[in-house]
């Protein structure tokens, strides 16, 4: 009945990827507005699911850290979560009546470590033994310089002679809104693309020293001077932080309008850094999917529409009679 009809106001955004690594992505998003860009950012941080340790049963702990301290540290260890999108949340898993310990909604980990020597033993994320080879602590070894003989994981606790740690942990699917340990994003930012116009005629009325001092008034290196032609150039527009220092400087020099800077309102530069739980590029795709699911969930239900149709007739009677 409704929903169809009327002109479409759909947009067709354009994407350009600039740089991509497993845990880093930089891309341009054009042809949409800040609300969509911000929704994507918010979803990436708080609503893309990952897997993290959520329940810890400690068998033996004679380390210097108390049980809950260790449980908290374990929760923060990023786990590879490519499976998370298709996994079930424990709370709506019907295979295990909500106790959240079945293969569909959880992954079990074991950790056993005891220090037998006089040297301190580092218990790291590498000591966590997973029951599922697809869900393991994130390995950062290729990101680090691999000249060191031994690759270390994330330190959980240090043990001295005679101390022991033995535990069982359950990892579950969750989202960053629930607890930050489930957030797959280290940082996600976007900025408006700046558009910088230098008034060439006005610049030419400046002496070289004046040009120099104006160029240096910017806290970030946005402008430079060509040593041969003594022309002022925009070397890196994206270094501009919208601080307006160069505009104030131009005014102070008695040359207002020396430069005009606009933020292009439909053009964004995104930087995505992942914790390693999922690849940065996959994080963006998952965010789009999650946002689509959210939109689908807020569609009007059939009974709401029917109830209103009746109301409409009733209203017509009231108005007519």
């Amino acid at each position: 009945m409704e929903g169809g009809g009327g002109a479409s106001y759909q947009r067709f955004p354009v994407v350009k990827v600039r740089e991509t690594k497993d845990d880093y992505l930089k891309f341009e998003l054009r042809g949409t507005d800040a609300s969509v860009a911000n929704a994507l950012r918010r979803v990436m941080i708080a609503e893309v699911p990952t897997i993290a340790i959520d329940l810890v049963e400690i068998e033996v702990n004679s380390s210097v850290l108390n049980d809950e301290f260790i449980a908290h540290r374990l929760g923060l260890v990023p786990l590879t979560s490519d499976r998370a999108m298709s996994m079930r949340f424990s709370r709506d898993c019907d295979a295990c009546d909500g106790d959240g310990q079945c293969e569909f909604c959880s992954v079990e980990f074991h950790l056993r470590a005891k220090c037998m020597t006089d040297q301190t033993l580092d218990v790291t994320s590498k000591d966590l033994i997973s029951s599922d080879h697809t869900v393991v602590p994130v390995d950062f070894s290729d990101a680090l310089a691999d000249d060191s003989a031994e690759q270390k994981g994330i330190t959980i606790v240090k043990l001295r002679r005679g101390q022991e740690l033995r535990l069982r942990a359950i990892a579950r699917k969750g989202i960053g809104k629930d607890h930050a340990k489930w957030s797959p994003a280290a940082t996600v930012t976007f900025m408006y693309e700046p558009e910088i116009h230098i008034n060439e005629d006005l610049v030419e009325t400046l002496s070289l020293e004046e040009k120099q001092s104006w160029v240096e008034s910017s806290p970030t290196k946005v402008f430079d001077i060509n040593p041969n032609t003594e022309q002022v150039l925009v070397v890196d527009p994206e270094a501009y932080t919208y601080d307006e220092e160069v505009i104030k400087k131009a005014e102070a020099m008695g040359k207002p309008g020396l430069v005009e800077i606009y933020a292009k309102e439909d053009s964004f530069i995104f930087t995505v850094e992942s914790t390693g739980a999922i690849k940065a590029s996959q994080l963006v795709l998952n965010a789009i999917d999650v946002l689509k699911q959210k939109l689908d969930a807020v569609r009007l239900s059939e009974d709401t529409v029917e109830a209103d149709d009746q109301f409409g007739e009733l209203g017509a009677h009231m108005r007519g009679g």
Binding site: G3, Q10, R11, F12, P13, V15, V36, I288, K292, L295
Partner: peptide
């Protein structure tokens, strides 16, 4: 409804 449909299509395109 139109707004949701248009956003949905925009995200498909994206």
């Amino acid at each position: 409804n139109q707004a949701i449909n248009d956003l949905d299509k925009e995200l498909d395109h994206l």
